[in-house]
Design a binder for these strands. Structure first.
Lengths: 260, 260
DNA sequence: ACAACATTTGTACGATGTACAGCAAGGGTT
DNA sequence: AACCCTTGCTGTACATCGTACAAATGTTGT
């Protein structure tokens, strides 16, 4: 990403750009994990003194924020933009695209979920998702709720996956990740936890993408039921994941809600 | 990890306990946010030199890990232990209990999701959840998938909520949080994002707990569909563990029919 | 009383984020 | 062409962080 050997001359006039700094930060995160993006390291990588960074960003938090925006801005909107396709497919495409994009930079993930994601690219993505859900037949309120649910799932699962893994360098390949997960599980005194051990064992056949999609489809099933409730039957979930709405409408909440 | 009754006073003047250190760390996090738990701060709070902490924990990461375990160990298992209640209610109770427990210490949340949660208390919780789902009628594999989905949702939503908020001190009350969320939304150039603006507006009537439960219930709907189809003809995967739908919702019978 | 030992402290080192003051190299004006 | 003023970078400095090392301190078993 960054060009090596480029010498910077002393002087004013635009030696750096914001993007060069963000590139350097991202490179460092990819190589050394979440703690590797120090201001000094970034500056050294682009070939300037540490405090030169503060010409472009007010503080380190701003760099992180810029990085988050940059990552979100890199997701391919075309993947789920086709309004002719069923909405579930479109959401799945979006979820997979986001996961692929963020998993490529695991070191950056903890940093970006550490702060609010309210930049223009984040909002644009949210806007797309909301529109998609409205297209699917949800009213505005439920579309908002559903988008929140989906966002939580996508970012939450990536965050947990990244947290589980050795936090330096790029994410290992999926088979490797499954293996280390199993190692981690078996290294634990699972003696008293038979079901956890069993889960770890059966998990071997379900690599992470499968699991990700399984959870996502359960969520889509739940949302689809609300679509049906709204009276819009233009799209009914079909196939192996098909469901019969009558069977999954939940009952009202349990008595004894929890006090704050 | 420290058992009451076994007093370890073998050293010189004053011997600390792991719990005293964790208490101090948690207090600092509650007061000053995720960055407030410095080793020096913790040591000062318990009244020792900074490096005295390293007698009890090998490094700071171990303190964080101990803290995560301590928090997870504090969740009340009785809330969802009653196997006579419908499984959905039990899951909701667990989810609410976890959320209430973790939201009380927002500063600790980013730290605990930053690393793997594989301590004994975390495993015990996972074990309980898996058992609960198996009781509900899921086979071992799908119980594992479903528990992962639920865990991602619970921790992910708490993490995102915490990230949205000012990262110091205890989480504001829910009305305040909604207000600041709206402020944050309106402070953003939502001009180009009509649906996001609309979502922010309609969100006012749906405080965070409502939203949390809405998403959780969509997930439960999706999982319930798997329970219902577990013994179905279309999906022969059930095999020897196949259960009859009648037993799946517990003794009370199909959803909506069980008595309070 | 003595020795073994567990615990705490003093000191120190390297790394981090960032504030402050100055210096160099344009562009704009004359 | 000579000025200066703005812009961008550097040098230096400080507080704070995690933590390693050895010395000091007190407790306990013999």
């Amino acid at each position: 990403m960054s060009v090596p050997g480029m010498r910077r001359r002393r002087g004013p006039r635009r030696a750096l750009t914001d993007d060069e700094i963000l590139d350097a930060a991202l490179d460092l995160l990819d190589e050394g994990g979440p703690d590797a993006a120090s201001v000094r390291g970034i500056a050294a990588r682009v070939g300037v003194a540490p405090n030169a960074v503060y010409t472009y960003f007010p503080d380190k938090a701003a760099v992180i924020k810029g990085l988050a925006e940059r990552l979100l801005g890199g997701v391919d909107h075309d993947v789920f933009a086709d309004r002719e396709r069923p909405w579930r497919e479109r959401v799945e495409a979006l979820a997979l695209e986001l996961r692929a994009h963020l998993s490529a930079h695991p070191g950056a993930v903890p940093l970006m979920i550490g702060g609010p994601m309210d930049g223009p690219h984040a909002l644009a993505l949210n806007e797309r998702l909301l529109q998609l859900l409205v297209d699917a037949g949800l009213d505005a309120t439920e579309a908002a709720q559903a988008s929140y649910l989906l966002i939580v799932y996508v970012f939450g699962s990536i965050a947990l996956e990244v947290a589980d893994v050795h936090r330096a360098g790029p994410l290992p390949s999926e088979p490797e990740r499954v293996a280390t997960r199993l190692v981690a599980f078996s290294a634990i005194p699972t003696g008293g936890f038979p079901r956890s051990a069993e889960a770890a064992a059966t998990m071997a056949g379900y690599v992470s993408t499968e699991q990700y999609l399984w959870g996502l489809r359960r969520i889509l099933d739940g949302i689809a039921a609300r679509v049906a409730t709204a009276g819009d039957v233009t799209e009914r979930a079909a196939g192996p994941d098909g469901l019969q709405p009558a069977e999954l409408w939940g009952q009202p909440g349990p008595p004894g809600a929890h006090p704050a």
